[in-house]
Structures are given as C-alpha cells and as structure tokens.
C-alpha cells in the first residue's frame, strides 16, 4: 500500500522526515522534507493534505508557505482547521475561504490531524531559502513518530469493460437496428 493514499499534485521526499510543506500556489523543490506540493482550494485541497499527512505519522510539522490564494484563502483556512476544527455542518470554524467545507473526511481524521501536527504559518513567504531553513530547523527538533498511520480514505480498484457498454458511442456502435451507421470512416 502506498504511504500517501490520496493521489494528487505533490512530491514525495524522505518518508521519515518530520516536516511536510504546503506551497499554496507556488511550486518549489526541497530537501529533508517528507512531502510537499501546492494546495489551491479551501475544501478539496485541504482534505487531500489532511488525509495524506495523517497517513504518515512521522510528519509532525506542516509548513504553510507561498503566496496566499486569492478568494479561496486556502492557506489561512488550513491554519483555521488546525486551530479551530469544524462545526456540525463540516464548515471550518472561522475560515476566511469562500467555501471552506470538509466533505470527505470524518471528524476523527480531523481530530487526528490537529493532534499529530503543528502548523507553521509562513503564508506569503516565497523565498525558498528561508523555507528550507525552517525545514532544517524543524527537522532538528523532531519529536518522533506519532504512532500508527491513520488511513482516512481508501480506493478500491474496479475493472471496467467497455464490452458491457450499452450506449452508442462513436465508432463502437452497439445500437444500430437499421444498419444505417457505418462503423468505419469519419467519426
């Protein structure tokens, strides 16, 4: 099984490193971090970050850096999730984003996230050297593994067969009772 269950736009580094980095709208490359990548939305983006961070208990710090996303305010909304949690409607409490709802994670996953990591707010920091410096600083004070991985989402492979398709699709026509449509030539 993969260490990070929810695929997305991120780079995997050292699995035993205690630091993960959310780069908001920017793309950077780091050393000595467990995982890093952009996060643009204050709902689905945050859900992916949370699910993947809690699946690696070695991650104890989550740096949020890069320029804040206008409108979505996803960086600040992530910090609010860690600070305040969610209400009974799944809304991130006090989040400034436009649609800051958690739909695909349960409250235990959110609780685990808030316990496992400490958010390091570097929102609007765009100097990669300063961010790398912070990664190295946090790595030096690693508090150790949090415990067992928390798997918040699981994907099960299902085989599909287009032979079972009953729709008339392009050239693969299954329905042509009058024989009017050629299956060769221009689609």
């Amino acid at each position: 099984m993969k260490m990070y269950p929810w695929p997305g736009d991120f780079v995997e580094g050292e699995p035993e490193a205690p630091v993960a980095v959310v780069t908001l709208g920017q793309r950077y490359s780091f050393e000595n971090a467990a995982i890093w990548g952009p996060m643009k939305t204050e709902n689905l983006g945050i859900e992916k970050v949370v699910a993947n961070v809690i699946s690696n208990p070695n991650i104890r710090y989550l740096i949020v850096c890069g320029r804040e996303i206008r409108g979505h305010r996803s960086g600040r909304s992530l910090a609010c999730l860690w600070e305040n949690g969610i209400d009974e409607n799944g809304r991130i409490i006090k989040a400034p984003g436009a649609v800051p709802y958690i739909e695909n994670l349960d409250s235990q996953a959110i609780h685990r996230f808030r316990e496992q990591v400490e958010i390091v707010d570097m929102i609007d920091e765009t100097e990669v050297d300063r961010i790398q410096e912070k990664i190295d600083e946090l790595r030096a004070k690693d508090p150790g593994c949090f415990g067992e991985p928390y798997i918040a989402i699981r994907f099960t492979e299902r085989k599909t067969s287009m032979e079972q398709c009953t729709l008339a699709l392009h050239a693969s026509l299954d329905v042509d009772p009058w024989g009017e449509v050629s299956t060769s030539g221009v689609r």
Partner: peptide, 25 residues
C-alpha cells in the same frame, strides 16, 4: 455549494478517449 463535493469515483487512464467513454458510460 458548487465548489466542493462528495467524492464518489475515481477514473484513471492514459488517453482522453477511454476516459471520456468511461465517463459517458
């Protein structure tokens, strides 16, 4: 709320046509 939702299925592939056909199916 049209910008967030409930994840119900993931489709993977290497070409646009197969994915489009699966989405329609």
């Amino acid at each position: 709320e049209v910008e967030t939702g409930d994840l119900d299925v993931v489709i993977k592939g290497v070409d646009a046509k197969s994915i489009c056909d699966t989405i329609v199916e």
